[in-house]
Design a protein around this nucleic acid. Structure first.
Length: 336
DNA sequence: GGTAGACCTGGACGC
DNA sequence: GCGTCCAGGTCTACC
């Protein structure tokens, strides 16, 4: 099997840095708990390749990238760029230090990097398919999008659908076979914007775009509201804004001990993380992630196919109660 | 500028 | 096994 090595930053730990954000559990990603490796398909222009990423040595040692086919140099460069994005290999030791200087709580474990997708398009779609749906629904939608619109590599690994493929897909197909519900037209419109490299997409992709303009441009995209815009910003490495949702309210109540209605708790969560300034999201996220790991065990032991119901409100409530966290009774439907 | 209600799916729950 | 209720963020109409 062809393979190559990728040199990560000196503090890089694959299991910790991949299992740092829920997208590692979403198709086409497959985290292998036993092997502690990540497999998925990548689209390289018109070509496909299946990759299995592992780190046979200790922290900071080279990553081993196994391929299910031989790649030419230009294709390998494309694959490498996507892997670097997904694994956040460009967030080097100085990036990590900058975060730990603001929030030293994560220095000992070295937490700083957040897993994301090989492309911005996949990150945007994963965000949109996580809105107004419980976690098992998000898992389902991503799996079906990959199976129905994505393609399979030689070794049977799936790729995420390209903007071009999704732009050609009929809304009925997305609704009936991918179970995306009312998101069908929004997903197709997003795919068309990415496929055409519209001015909005160029603004979003430009690292020089100021945060405020980036935020406003994201809000203009179909299916993207305040939560999704803030989340896409963190996926772009802009950590100043918090994607506040019902999960933030739960965290505010159960972990931070805030009281009041949802709106008040959300405001207090926002205020709580304001001192972390341009690192606010990472402080917020790792605090929540640590809470999940307390309830469910280390993230690198989570199986994709059995964690589907893990993050439902009912399940979290049960686990929090079992762990001794108080969970005040919430209104039947959380108000935003 | 703020808010109510519709949107759609799958899990939970009661019978 | 079936029916009903609930969770979830965005969008639009309306005040």
């Amino acid at each position: 099997m062809p393979s190559f090595a990728l040199k990560p930053p000196s503090d890089y730990a694959l299991a910790r840095d991949v299992c740092s954000y829920g997208y590692f559990l979403l198709a086409p990603n497959r985290w292998n708990v036993k092997e502690q490796s990540l497999a998925r398909g990548l689209v390289l222009g018109k070509e496909l390749v299946g990759v299995v990423i592992s780190q046979p040595g200790a922290r900071g040692s080279p990553l081993r990238i196994q391929l299910d086919r031989t790649l030419t140099s230009p294709l390998r460069a494309l694959a490498e760029a996507q892997l670097r994005r997904m694994l956040r290999l460009d967030e080097d030791e100085s990036h990590v230090r900058a975060f730990h200087k603001v929030d030293p709580r994560w220095k000992r474990k070295g937490r700083a990097r957040l897993f994301r997708s090989p492309t911005l398009f996949e990150d945007v779609l994963k965000t949109v398919t996580s809105c107004n749906v419980t976690w098992p629904g998000t898992v389902q939608m991503n799996r079906r999008l990959c199976e129905v619109v994505g393609r399979a590599t030689r070794s049977g690994l799936h790729t995420f659908p390209t903007p071009q493929a999704l732009a050609r897909t009929r809304p009925q197909t997305l609704r009936a076979r991918c179970r995306v519900g009312y998101r069908d037209l929004r997903i197709i419109e997003l795919a068309r914007l990415f496929a055409a490299r519209s001015p909005e997409i160029r603004i979003i992709e430009d690292p020089a775009t100021p945060d405020e303009l980036l935020h406003q441009t994201l809000l203009s995209l179909p299916g993207v509201g305040p939560y999704a815009a803030a989340n896409i910003m963190q996926l772009l490495g802009r950590y100043s804004r918090l994607p506040l949702d019902t999960e933030s309210v739960r965290h505010g109540r159960t972990v931070l001990g805030f009281t009041g209605n949802s709106k008040q708790v959300m405001r207090r969560v926002h205020e709580h993380f304001t001192p972390f300034q341009d690192q606010a999201f990472r402080s917020y996220w790792f605090e929540m992630w640590e809470h999940y790991e307390k309830l469910q065990g280390p993230a690198h032991t989570w199986e994709r196919d059995t964690t589907g119901t893990m993050f439902t409100a009912a399940q979290l409530k049960k686990l929090a109660a079992a762990a001794g966290h108080t969970t005040p009774k919430q209104p039947a439907r959380a108000r935003k």
